[in-house]
Design a protein around this nucleic acid. Structure first.
Lengths: 147, 147
DNA sequence: GTATATAGTTCAGCGCGCTTAACTAAAAAG
DNA sequence: CTTTTTAGTTAAGCGCGCTGAACTATATAC
């Protein structure tokens, strides 16, 4: 009974320490590149959940189809994604991240990785191994939970 | 040589998997409460870096003093923070999170913790212990790096 | 004391994300 | 074939974050 509570506490401390730091990082990146956070969020979703339709965008980000359409229009205009017609349903659009868009996202992630790498390098080889194993556990568990 | 690269890869996989999920979580929370992301970011900074002046806000979020002043004004108006005069410099203001503001932030974090807890519960007791130790290492390292 | 730098505020104006409402086009239901 | 539902677009308008510029008040330099 005390063990799970303790575990939960550590998870929370971790999230507190790192999540909003990441948020600020993305925000800065967004500003430096001229894109907005919502636009970047869409590219990120496309990046690691693959192509989808407009409706999925508006559902996942909880905005109206109109808003989704306008955001996507801007991203398509600068060439970060492509809007193709879904062959199985000519009303629907199939949104795919372009190579340029993928590069963009990778570059943004790269910047945020830096401090994480720096952080990692302050650990001993032994500790790094421990952390690796633990994070792998978490990553796998997360994949499992997403189905 | 291959070990550090491997470690770095795992750190990145972790960040990819979790960070933007957290971002979406905060965004939803923001919308549901009527505050904006910038406002919440300020409260979060106050929450875990303690009181500071206006200038620190504008520096850390990379906005003009004017913008910082306006954001803080709104937060003060709804009672999430207090703007007191710095006794050592009567030009400067000392921003502190109010109890109400602290509650607000905790509640927002609470919501995002939920899936993390769910995730944690899919792990065996043994794995939970491994993860706990590893995250503690990371948290301590981060504190160290922040000086 | 005068001059200059610093901390913060106020205001006009801009861009952006968002919504509502009206619309087009294709698919599904009858 | 007609009706209705679904996917997405377009346009007007609102609120908000942000900036630049002008301003107040305190602190520092000479």
């Amino acid at each position: 009974m005390t063990k799970p509570a303790q575990f939960s506490k550590i998870l929370r401390a971790w999230m507190d320490a790192f999540m909003h730091r990441s948020m600020r990082g993305w925000h800065r990146f967004a500003k430096s590149t001229g894109l907005s956070m919502p636009q970047i969020s869409i590219l990120m979703q496309l990046h690691h959940r693959g192509p989808c339709g407009m409706s999925e965008i508006s559902e996942r980000f909880d905005i109206t189809p109109a808003a989704a359409s306008q955001l996507v229009e801007k991203l398509a205009h600068v060439g970060y994604l492509e809007r193709a017609e879904d062959p199985s349903d000519r009303r629907a659009k199939l949104l795919t991240l372009s190579a340029k868009g993928a590069d963009f996202i990778k570059q943004g992630a790269e910047e945020r990785y830096r401090w994480m790498d720096k952080l990692a390098n302050t650990l001993s080889a032994e500790d790094q191994k421990k952390v690796s194993e633990a994070l792998t556990l978490l990553i796998d568990a997360a994949k499992e939970m997403d189905k």
